[in-house]
C-alpha cells in the first residue's frame, strides 16, 4: 500500500538521460499547478494578517505589508473562537475515542467469535454505510430534540459513536493476524480479552492509528449536524463558529480569514504529523492494502 505521500523513493526516477529542458518543463508545470492549488490558502493567510484598508489595494494585498496580528485577537473576541475550538476538540476526541472502542470490539467479534446470526448482523453493518447521515437528519433531529440533547455534547457525539467503515477496516486487519497466533495465545493461557489487548490490537495498530486520524478529521470537519442541533454559542463547534464569525463581521474579511486560518490549523498539524495514517485512511478501499 502506498501510504507514502512525500517519500520520493516511492516514485520512479526521471528516465536516464532525460533532456534537461523536459525536466525544466515539468518543474514549470509543477510550479504553475502549485500556485493555482495553493492560491486560496495563500490569499487567506495574506488577508488575515493585513489591516482592512490594504485589502482593496491590488496587487499590493498579495504581497503582505503592514503586518497585523490583532485580527487573530479580534477573531477570538468578536466570536467565541476559543470556546468553539474547545468544543470541536472535545467533540472530535470523544467521537474518535468512541469510534475506536466500538469498532475494535465489533471488529473483534466479527473476526474471531462464532455466534448465531453473524452474517445477518454483518449485512446490517454494511447497510449502515448506505444510509448517508443527510438522509436521517429529519428523524435524528426529532430524536435528539426529544432527548433534550439540542445544544449539548451528547447530541454532537452520541450519534457518531459507531462506525461500520472502521469496523470493516479493523476486521480486515484482525483477519490478517495469523490464526496460529490466536491458537498459541489460547495455549499460553490468554482468553479473548487478553488476546485482544495483548496481540490483536498491537498488531492492528497501524490501521487503528489510520482510523483514529481519519475519524478525527471527519468529526472536526463536520458541518451539517452541528449546525442543525446547536444554537447556543456555548456548544457550537468551530466550523459553525466560523459561520457565525462570517455573518457578524461581513465587512471584515481579515478577521474572518484569521478565524478560518485558526480553524484550519489543527488539521494542518494533523496532516503534517500523521500524514502516513491519514493517507492510509483516505485510500483504504481505493488501493489494495
Amino acid at each position: 500500500m502506498a501510504a507514502e505521500l512525500v517519500d520520493p523513493r516511492a516514485l520512479p526516477p526521471p528516465p536516464s538521460g532525460a533532456h534537461p529542458v523536459r525536466i525544466a518543463g515539468r518543474y514549470g508545470l509543477l510550479v504553475v499547478a502549485a500556485v493555482v492549488v495553493a492560491f486560496p490558502i495563500y490569499v487567506a493567510v495574506a488577508v488575515s494578517i493585513q489591516p482592512s484598508d490594504r485589502l482593496l489595494r491590488f496587487p499590493a494585498v498579495l504581497i503582505p505589508g503592514d503586518l497585523r496580528l490583532d485580527t487573530f485577537e479580534r477573531a477570538f473576541t468578536q466570536a467565541r473562537l476559543g470556546r468553539y475550538l474547545v468544543n470541536s476538540a472535545v467533540v472530535s476526541l470523544v467521537i474518535t475515542a468512541g469510534q475506536l472502542v466500538t469498532s475494535i470490539l465489533a471488529a473483534y467479534a466479527f473476526a474471531y467469535l462464532r455466534f448465531p446470526a453473524k452474517r445477518v448482523l454483518f449485512v446490517a453493518f454494511i447497510a449502515t454505510l448506505m444510509v448517508p447521515s443527510e438522509v436521517t437528519i429529519v428523524a435524528n433531529y426529532e430524536t435528539v430534540q426529544r432527548l433534550g440533547w439540542l445544544d449539548s455534547y451528547q447530541g454532537l457525539t452520541v450519534p457518531f459513536l459507531a462506525t461500520a467503515f472502521g469496523t470493516f477496516l479493523l476486521r480486515q486487519s484482525f483477519l490478517q493476524v495469523p490464526r496460529d497466533l490466536r491458537d498459541a495465545a489460547a495455549l499460553d493461557g490468554y482468553g479473548h480479552w487478553g488476546f485482544l489487548a495483548g496481540v490483536a490490537v498491537p498488531l492492528a495498530r497501524p490501521m487503528i492509528a489510520a482510523l483514529g486520524v481519519f475519524s478525527f478529521l471527519l468529526s472536526w470537519n463536520q458541518y451539517l449536524w452541528p449546525l442543525l442541533i446547536t444554537n447556543d454559542d456555548a456548544y457550537r463547534t468551530v466550523q459553525i463558529g466560523l459561520k457565525a464569525l462570517a455573518s457578524t463581521n461581513i465587512d471584515q474579511l481579515n478577521v474572518i480569514m484569521a478565524g478560518t486560518v485558526i480553524a484550519a490549523l489543527p488539521i494542518f498539524a494533523l496532516l503534517v504529523l500523521f500524514q502516513r495514517q491519514l493517507i492510509r485512511g483516505l485510500t483504504s478501499g481505493a488501493v489494495k492494502g
Binding site: 495469523p178 496460529d180 491458537d183 498459541a184 489460547a186 495455549l187 499460553d188 493461557g189 498488531l203
Partner: peptide, 20 residues
Amino acid sequence: VEPKARDVAMVFQSYALYPH
C-alpha cells in the same frame, strides 16, 4: 477443557511468534 487448563504446550509450524 480450555486449552490453557490442559497444561500442554505447542510449537506451531509457523512458530506463531508474536511479531510485536
